[in-house]
Write a protein that binds this DNA or RNA. Structure first.
Lengths: 208, 208, 208, 208
DNA sequence: CATGAATGAGCTTTCATTCAT
DNA sequence: CATGAATGAAAGCTCATTCAT
């Protein structure tokens, strides 16, 4: 007699299977059957717990955002060392995308759908970006220490970091074909991180 | 008697319809029927001209790459003015993505499929990147004019520009929800372009 | 703390919701979920109280018959005035169908199923037709008063009245499309009632 | 090697199977699979030829109306004999419903749906009622021959005939349970026809 | 060169119902 | 007495593709 799955675990299994499948195949490509099979459950349960495929996708998205938010919240760092702090933020972002590539494909999938699910989600909008607040603090301390320029916005620095990290991971397959390089080796990633660090610092430092 | 579509135009209609549809709905979401209807033709013609849905997608991808390549080739600029030249490259890239958003979603779609189509394409690999060559020339002239640092690679500068431009357009829907801003106004895009220009220049200038 | 529905009211809610839903959508179209939602209850309760969808439908049918029977029983009229009495019966039948259109669609639904539920119901067969008895009395008095012909059966007069009233209401949608008229206005119904009265009387009167 | 069905016959087979199935099980109860199996075809073909289940039902309805219309058109009778003519019309209508019971259940099904399909159909509205025109002619001749009253409308006589014939067939199952009689024997039907004839004539005759 | 006809497999979703406490 | 959880089967429909001329 197989162990009976509890109600909570059935739901959770479906949710994490859906995260995997949607991230791998996109929204249309991620069929209900692929998800239920991956969750070792049956199609019907998806409708029982999430109402529809779209409802499930929305919850997957909310989850992904929440995890990113939580990870940023855990990013405790000493803001009195602004240069070191910025480097740590860069390292964190690049590392997060490397370890959670599903976050990237989920966001791409949602952007393909022009953000229509995130618009329906009530919870997703609650997530502020802890990282922007951290960067803001780092910039202020850097200015106080006569290290940083005064006219740089935390939002722009945040977007610069995210854009370079995100793009590198998101487009690694077409870039590899295009550049004729393997971008996923440790060396390649380290080199990119180092270039990004240098770029970000030069954009904020008073005297590079 | 209605005008008979020529063979050439039927094929062309399908190709441009497919570009539209794949860009809008992705590979799985872009059904053969959506494409044929959008091209005012019938499913059967897609198989007649392109063999399969995958064959059609590959040709759409090749086309998109070729057009980008052609556009870069037309980017004649005076490389003796390196600072101005870099700014023009940045303006070109951002503007190209704005005017050809389908290029972005097609690349995202292909990356979701882990680049499996681009791998099958023979022509796609032929496209070098004229832009990298241009940047390389600009950097060399900048170094010769004692304006630029010596240890910056054209490939990295190119990726920096592309990443920031691409990410801004690609993720405009989720970013808008996340930041609570409209990123598609002319003012917002101009501000982003200005920040990128400043960042790129600071990363290459000897004395910012 | 919300008011707890009593057991009796839950059952009653389901029964009246089922009457509405079956009358509106038919037997197959009236899903268990539509009914439970309309009754502000849950699917499970239908099985708790009625055993099955079919059991619920049978009870709905029995109910409808019983209400019709009860209404006919309340039809107290002075049978010593046979002409006036017949007109009152006609008015009653037409009016009953107008006010209880669900009775018509329930019967149509049951006839579509070839009467298989009514056959299973034990109570439904108990209902005699009080109206036939009334008509019978009216005919006898009319004969005694030398007003009516002797060779007319109460059963036929009853069916004539019911057929014309039922058909007019039952087929009002297709008739409206077919005749290009609105049959549901008060004037249209009054005119039909007047024609029926005249027809019924002429069929029984000795000297019309 | 089985004989290959021609394109026309596949479509026709589906249409007549659908008429049978919808008439027997109603719209909801008449599943696409029941129809395709009955037509010895497959579900997919229904969508190929009719677009949707609803599209198929509309065509079935139009067909039923057209056949009724055609049958009435073929009803050539000598209008110079008005009494005999009316009896023939009554016989025709009752006989048509007996031989085409699917017409009745299709109309009931459509009325259950409040006529929403007939409203969408463009062709269905084209069918005038040849029978009304015939009755009109009979009434005029009857008046000219001093046989009929002047103040009777052909439309009402038509509805009277149709209502009594339709109701008798449509409700034969519940009526049988209710009256405790078998209404489908030849004797029973003949008796009903005879009563209807008498009733209709009495409603139009100057001196019954 | 072009196209109408056909199709098996898969899709998302809803069906009436039972399990288990 | 009442109800949350679960479910196999079937529903209507769309998928990319091939047949046959």
């Amino acid at each position: 007699m197989p162990a009976k799955a509890t109600s909570a675990s059935t739901r959770d299994n479906i949710l994490s299977a859906a995260t995997r499948v949607f991230a791998r195949y996109g929204y249309e490509g991620g069929s209900v059957e692929k998800i239920s099979r991956s969750a070792k459950s049956v199609d019907r349960m998806i409708y029982y717990y999430f109402g529809s495929k779209e409802g499930l996708f929305i919850e997957v998205l909310e989850n992904a955002y929440r995890r990113m938010n939580d990870a940023e919240l855990k990013l405790k760092l000493d803001t009195s060392q602004p240069i070191d702090g910025l480097n740590r933020v860069i390292g964190f972002v690049l590392s997060y995308y490397r370890k959670n590539p599903e976050f990237i494909t989920l966001l791409n999938t949602e952007n393909l759908q022009r953000g229509k699910h995130i618009a329906k989600s009530e919870r997703a909008r609650e997530y502020s970006s802890p990282a922007i607040a951290i960067i803001s603090e780092l910039l202020q301390n850097g200015i106080a220490q006569k290290l940083f320029r005064k006219d740089v916005s935390a939002r722009n620095v945040y977007l610069l970091i995210v854009a370079t990290a995100y793009f590198y991971m998101s487009n690694r397959f077409t870039l590899a074909a295009f550049l004729g390089e393997n971008l996923q080796t440790t060396d390649a990633i380290d080199a990119w991180q180092s270039f990004i660090s240098s770029t970000v610092l030069r954009s904020v430092l008073l005297k590079p």
